[in-house]
Design a binder for these strands. Structure first.
Lengths: 247, 247
DNA sequence: CCAAAAGTGTTCTCTCTACACCCATGC
DNA sequence: GCATGGGTGTAGAGAGAACACTTTTGG
């Protein structure tokens, strides 16, 4: 570490001196942590990794990473999501920033939290393994293990966020495959809101918004009456959007 | 700058090396920017400062400051608000983090934005002058000058936030003096939501929540019929809160 | 024919909206 | 007495909530 060209040290010192003068008061960094929601087998799940590095080696944690020098927070979140899952073009949103002094044992790390809603099952499969995790699993939100850092808190705030959001914006569709049945849709609402809904009222209301397109297609391969498949119509939703509907 | 004891440089280099190994990828810092809303003379205003330092010397900007090493984001926001206004015990909330690469011309500064709602007029007077500003003024949100950095964007997002929030939580009360009339309250709603409301319907709805306490007092010193004064009842609101009312 | 889920209407209640006039006060 | 804002009720429309049975399909 101390064997290189001494000019490098001078440069380092110079850079710090200049920055110190104008800007930073201490050395710090940012990370992005993601709460990746998925819906599978009638359950709401999030992606967790089992850490393979200190601190919190062997603990479960939210996937996340450090922000790079040349990328904005949103770009960073998109990159990290892509690295972790191989996915792009995903509904993703920054929702809170966690900056307690000691949230990271190795220094001041402020973490900007994003959530994303992923379509599980179907053809797209998430391949979340990266080198700093032993493995990654989708885990039911009702059955989470103890999490590293302040990730429990980050998760809870994210959960609150989508509970509020699902009432006003069509995020439920992001969790489902492109073609879905009304029962599947209702199921997403019930699981996220954590309460039973009335089937007739739910259908009436959903259809009344006019953002579902009946595909004139049926499920197949099910051992009961096949349900009609619908698709979410983004163009119609965009028109409706201005007046803030209540799902 | 380069004349001190060389051990200090060694220490600096050492500290950087260690941190570099484990954590930070680059030198960076955070700031807090505040959108301080106030309501005065029937207008919604925010506090702006005229900068006295580069960059953006002589520009108007949102009040803000750097986060210190030993304080959490919320603590920092509270401190900064106090330094800028002398006020404490104010409704304040983090709402978004701005992290574009070039948002600050002198380096990477990620800014965590908070808003606060202040009671103007009455007995509490805001004394917002600090040393990095020439002066500070309350300026009508409909009449803002060009702002430094990305502060226009920060303001707009804050404005959106309170527009949504006022529909579900009693933040309007935070902008008014402790005793207020129903017309004043309606006025706050009209200005923030930017539309006229029906007087009878507004009163009916507000009173129906049961969170206003009639003080059996009247205005005085007005040149027309004196209005009844009300007070916001926080205890009753707390009970109601769980079921997310719509103002 | 049975199990499992799909699909379908009506009634009642409550909430939202639209709307106009008299009252009290200071000057 | 007039200008200014304070204060009040009702009717109609629309949205939300409660509620149960028939249909279709695969096995």
């Amino acid at each position: 570490m101390f064997t290189g060209n001494k000019y490098i040290y001078l440069l380092l010192i110079f850079k710090i001196s200049v920055l110190k003068e104008v800007l930073p008061k201490f050395n710090s960094t940012f990370s992005i942590d993601c709460v990746l929601f998925g819906f599978d087998e009638g359950e709401l799940k999030i992606l967790l990794i089992e850490r393979n590095e200190e601190p919190f080696k062997d603990w479960w944690a939210l996937p996340g990473n450090l922000v790079e020098e040349n990328e904005s927070l949103d770009q960073s979140a998109t990159r990290i999501l892509h690295e972790l899952t191989g996915l792009s073009d995903i509904y993703m949103e920054q929702y809170y920033t966690f900056g307690d002094v000691n949230r990271h044992p190795q220094g001041r790390v402020v973490s900007i939290a994003y959530y994303a809603l992923l379509r599980l099952g179907g053809d797209k499969v998430v391949k979340p393994i990266s080198n700093y995790a032993k493995q990654a699993y989708w885990i039911n939100v009702k059955d989470l293990p103890k999490l590293a850092f302040d990730h429990q808190q980050i998760f809870e705030k994210g959960m609150e966020k989508i509970m509020r959001r699902i009432k006003h914006q069509p995020i439920a569709f992001e969790l489902l495959p492109e073609k879905f049945t009304l029962t599947q849709l209702q199921n997403v609402y019930e699981v996220i809101l954590n309460k039973k809904l009335d089937k007739r009222n739910f259908r009436k209301k959903m259809l009344s918004f006019g953002v579902l397109r009946d595909l004139n297609e049926k499920q197949y391969g099910v051992s009961f009456r096949a349900a009609t498949l619908y698709k979410f119509d983004k163009r119609k939703y965009a028109k409706l959007f201005s007046k803030e509907i209540s799902f």
